[in-house]
């Protein structure tokens, strides 16, 4: 297998949509959750793409679709140029070896009744990557690569700390030598002092192995430090996508701006509460609308401080504005404001 050219995406989603029927009470028949709607994005070899959003934005559904744990309702997924749906049907193990996932909660993602050695060894065994006699040694190497010791082989998950468990989960994903790893909030369940350790580990692994990450997070400040490109999602849609540099300079979509402004940050000029800080947009009002009946037009218009009649009538397309793609009718105008 030859390495793909730098420009070729390893994993590419085209117009991905996912709808779930709502199982529900009387009169609930025929209702549908629109979890993903027309999501297109791609990750190049060895790169990190961050997907940012709050609960209900569809990022977990996206992770499930990208890793073949869920079949999308529409759209297509390409793995190194090949149709993933087809590959999952005909040669599922080829797909599984190349795309792996690391979950948020390291307490839930390891089987409590299996030792660390068993859990990581399972990955090798299923894919026939190490004969029974070599397996233990190979697992030891993988544990060493994620900063754990040989002695952890025979431990159970409850004997490890949260950070150590997340390292085990990373070792399990790496065992099959994937080309892309979907990291679903991999550090948000960890203590602050441990988060940086795990991020540094992921970065070291990327340098060494050239693996691509799709990094899902709710933390804009974090992803600006680790991603080459960032996609911001709201209610199942990508609302802004561009390089970390461009988005770090300024955000154009009103939701991205509100998300960034809402995150507390140490060292903002006055350490007054955000709503008293004159230079900062006020916090968004209300909750994220239900994805069962997403608002017509622009899905953000119910909470948008810049909303106008056109926004509730006509859904904006994702279009190029300056150096990024934005899903907003008035992006240029908003950019002009600030």
């Amino acid at each position: 297998m030859t390495a793909p050219a730098a420009a070729t995406p390893v994993l590419e989603a085209q117009d991905l949509a996912k709808r779930f029927p709502v199982a529900g009470g009387i009169g609930g028949r025929g209702r549908v959750v629109h979890a993903l709607n027309g999501v297109s994005l791609s990750v190049a070899a060895g790169e990190t793409l961050a997907v940012v959003g709050e609960s209900g934005c569809g990022k977990s559904t996206l992770a499930n679709c990208l890793t073949g744990l869920m079949a999308p309702s529409a759209g297509s997924l390409l793995l190194q140029g090949e149709d993933a749906a087809l590959m999952l049907r005909r040669e599922p193990m080829r797909f599984r070896r190349r795309v792996q996932i690391v979950f948020q909660d390291p307490y839930a993602s390891l089987n409590p009744r299996r030792t660390i050695g068993d859990t990581v060894g399972d990955a090798l065994r299923i894919h026939g990557l190490a004969a029974r006699r070599e397996r233990r040694g190979r697992v030891g190497q993988l544990l060493a690569e994620v900063g754990l010791a040989e002695e952890h082989l025979d431990r159970y998950p409850h004997e490890l700390s949260g950070g150590q468990r997340q390292r085990v989960a990373i070792a399990r994903a790496l065992a099959v030598e994937p080309v892309v790893v979907v990291c679903d909030e991999p550090v948000s369940a960890l203590d602050v002092s441990i988060q940086a350790q795990v991020i540094n580990l992921l970065r070291d692994i990327q340098r060494r192995r050239g693996v691509a990450y799709l990094f899902i997070s709710h933390n804009l400040a974090l992803v600006r430090h680790i991603a080459r490109r960032i996609a911001v999602m709201y209610l199942g849609e990508v609302v802004e996508i561009g390089t970390a540099e461009a988005l770090g300079r300024r955000m154009l979509h009103p939701y991205s701006r509100a998300l960034f402004a809402a995150a507390p940050a140490i060292g903002r000029p006055s350490h007054d509460p955000p709503h008293l800080d004159p230079g900062r947009p006020p916090p968004l009002s209300g909750d994220v609308p239900s994805p069962i009946d997403p608002p017509p037009g622009c899905r953000f218009h119910t909470r948008c401080p810049h909303a106008r009649p056109r926004c509730s009538a006509e859904a904006p397309a994702l279009r190029l504005v300056d150096d990024r793609l934005v899903r907003c009718h008035f992006a240029e105008e908003i950019a002009g404001h600030g």
Partner: peptide, 9 residues
């Protein structure tokens, strides 16, 4: 942990 096993095939 079950989803991880499925993702491994």
């Amino acid at each position: 942990y079950v989803r991880a096993c499925r993702a491994l095939g």
